[in-house]
Write a protein that binds this DNA or RNA. Sequence first.
DNA 1: CGCGACGTTGATTTGCCTCAACGATTGTGG
DNA 2: CCACAATCGTTGAGGCAAATCAACGTCGCG
Lengths: 179, 179
Amino acid sequence: MPDHEFDLITTLMMPKKLRRRQYLLEAGDVCTKLAFVSGGCLRLFELDGSGREHILMFAIEGFWMVDVESWRARTPSTRNIDALEDSELLLIDVTSLDRLTLSVPAWDRYFKGVLENAYADAVARISEFVSASAEDRYLRFLSMYPGLFQRIPLHQIASYLGITPQSLSRIRRELAERK
Amino acid sequence: MPDHEFDLITTLMMPKKLRRRQYLLEAGDVCTKLAFVSGGCLRLFELDGSGREHILMFAIEGFWMVDVESWRARTPSTRNIDALEDSELLLIDVTSLDRLTLSVPAWDRYFKGVLENAYADAVARISEFVSASAEDRYLRFLSMYPGLFQRIPLHQIASYLGITPQSLSRIRRELAERK
DNA sequence: CGCGACGTTGATTTGCCTCAACGATTGTGG
DNA sequence: CCACAATCGTTGAGGCAAATCAACGTCGCG
């Protein structure tokens, strides 16, 4: 990649620090920025009718985060993104992304790969819900986000798995006893 | 779009008919083709340890179908794609797709949109599994694939929802009684 | 220190599964 | 064209995994 292309990328990516519990996206706003997580941990979640939180995905170091629905349709999001730990991000907005896509072929290929990866991961997660038990999903969470289980509260993991904190606590006990 | 670009697209898309129960992709093969469904209905599914089928997604008229995991990594698929009705497809293989992407800008944009859409749909489906009941998921199935519920057996829908045919039968009865 | 957040455990309830049986419909080979 | 099998949807009975409701101990932090 030529130097000027690399420079363009670094110019368009805006560094941002987010403190724990701080929001990157609030429901009602349009998600106009993609976030690359260089440190810390983000969550994408939504609230149901009873005010309960449901986590759709995490993003740790090396992951990208976006609410794709809002980002794609330019409509107000029904979801939220916030930080579970103090985090360091690189943000890029839609127009900058389009510029990169047009003028830096290597970026275009890279980003297409990111998108395909994200899609493949999402399908794999659907597969778990359709066919796997809560325990299986927990084990896959452990390998998908290495070490994360020691960094965030158990009830956040339970929310991601679609079960209650109590159930996850019992699953953990089961696993520990069996091993 | 210039004529020669349009011609290139039609040249590279191969029409194919698939009879009911006929396979487009079998587990073990690499998914090298994308399928655009112009008529009929395909399913993407996998088998678990007990030999039970679990449907990850359907594709009806106007949808694209692929096993993105195998397609992306060029690895043997763990999944299957077959037809639930006699179907008409337009197939395009990986190399043809790359050619279109490079030489037809409009196609590149279109296809990026398709991918983003697919990703957004997958996230929405994850959202259902994390937070919604089987009944809610059934109602969303009805709006996502209009009319499909009259075209395929109930147990295929149940598999897609991650429940048993018996449960779906009872959910339907509930809905009918309440309405 | 006191309070809220967190994880665990117990008792009870519930949504969905499993097993089983049964009619209705579809499809097929003789 | 009919007989028989397979597929399909439904219903009932009983069981299990996870939810709910509730209580309690620990920890960290303002």
